[in-house]
């Protein structure tokens, strides 16, 4: 999509129907994954962004092991200071080190992003497979529900649900874990629709295909048919949708924290850091800038990687 998508190999899209090109004849046979990798590499921004993304993930995972400044070391003598050698990204109003807090908060933000994505993919595959397999009225009903979820006012509902359930859940599993489970589940439950549609579409397009017919004729069980033949074919588009889901979940979690309604105040997620920083913009802009940049870079990288993956795994959708 962005810039580097090649002009399609057959010229027909360019207005010259009927010209045959046979690129396969010239290239040695390669596996679909190699082919996908070749297409992904062509998307330079996606390659750069996967580098950035991997760096960020490694940084938040192992960074705290090397950068051993405590996230809650209060020191009023250095409060609200800009970047310096002691505090590379500066300090907040309690003199806490922002780099340490951003590294720690990144773990939470990324963990929420990936966990919510898994919930979304799980629900999406489940609903999509059910609809695709059952067809008829079940399918119509499930698709109605899918469309309904697509038109839900997500943020208000998210806020409402967290407002109603937070206390009950934190009472059971503790404030940090309770909020984590709640946020991950709900964000996941608001993001499965795209995956469900993709999986269902795959069912409908493959149901009549010869190899599925053949597998059915050979007596493959329904579950095996789905697991071995249909889902692998839906994998490419689902991976693309899942990537975008990670970004959506990170934004959703950050939004909640930014509104002061996400994780408890002592857990410095990126959104929470912004929430704390927003009243000190005039004298400590670095406080808001760095966590904001962290969110932006992560989301941008994921979006570009998703775009590259779309080129690589879903070549039919030329966008």
């Amino acid at each position: 999509m962005a810039g580097s998508t090649p002009v399609s190999a057959t010229v027909s899209a360019g207005g010259a129907p009927g010209v045959l090109v046979t690129p396969e004849a010239r290239r040695p046979p390669i596996s679909p994954w190699q082919d996908a990798w070749r297409r992904f590499r062509k998307h330079r921004l996606a390659v750069v962004c996967s580098g950035i993304l991997i760096t960020m993930i490694v940084a938040v995972l192992v960074g705290p092991l090397f950068y051993r400044v405590p996230i809650d070391g209060i020191d009023f003598s250095v409060r609200l200071q800009g970047p310096s050698w002691d505090h590379p990204l500066g300090t907040d109003d309690l003199g806490q080190d922002l780099l340490a807090r951003i590294l720690y908060g990144g773990r939470i933000s990324l963990a929420v992003g990936f966990a919510a994505m898994f919930v979304a993919v799980f629900v999406g595959v489940l609903v999509g497979s059910l609809a695709g397999m059952a067809g008829g009225k079940t399918d119509a009903a499930l698709m109605w529900v899918t469309d309904l979820f697509l038109s839900l006012p997500q943020l208000p509902l998210l806020l409402l649900i967290i407002y109603l359930f937070r206390d009950a859940l934190t009472g059971v599993v503790g404030p940090e874990m309770g909020v984590f489970i709640l946020i991950v589940t709900i964000i996941g439950l608001f993001n499965w629709m795209q995956v469900a549609r993709l999986v269902r579409a795959q069912f409908f397009s493959l149901r009549e295909k010869e190899f599925v017919e053949a597998a059915r004729a050979l007596g493959a069980s329904r579950f095996r048919l789905v697991w071995k033949h249909i889902l692998p074919n839906a994998l490419g588009p689902v991976i693309v949708a899942a990537t975008i889901d990670v970004a959506a979940a990170i934004i959703a979690e950050s939004t909640l924290s930014f509104l002061g309604l996400g994780f408890p105040p002592d857990i410095p997620t990126w959104g929470r850091l912004l929430f704390d920083a927003k009243d000190n913009l005039d004298f400590a802009p670095h406080w808001a800038l760095f966590p904001g940049l962290a969110i932006f870079l992560t989301v941008l990288s994921i979006n570009f990687v998703g775009d590259g993956l779309r080129d690589a795994l879903d070549p039919r959708r030329v966008k």
């Binding site: 939004t255 930014f258 959104g271 912004l274 913009l281 808001a288 570009f304």
Partner: peptide, 18 residues
């Protein structure tokens, strides 16, 4: 295209602060 990607990867709460 690049600007559009940047535009919708910038969460509204961060653009607001910026």
């Amino acid at each position: 295209n690049t600007l559009a990607f940047v535009g919708f990867s910038l969460p509204t709460f961060f653009t607001g602060l910026l």
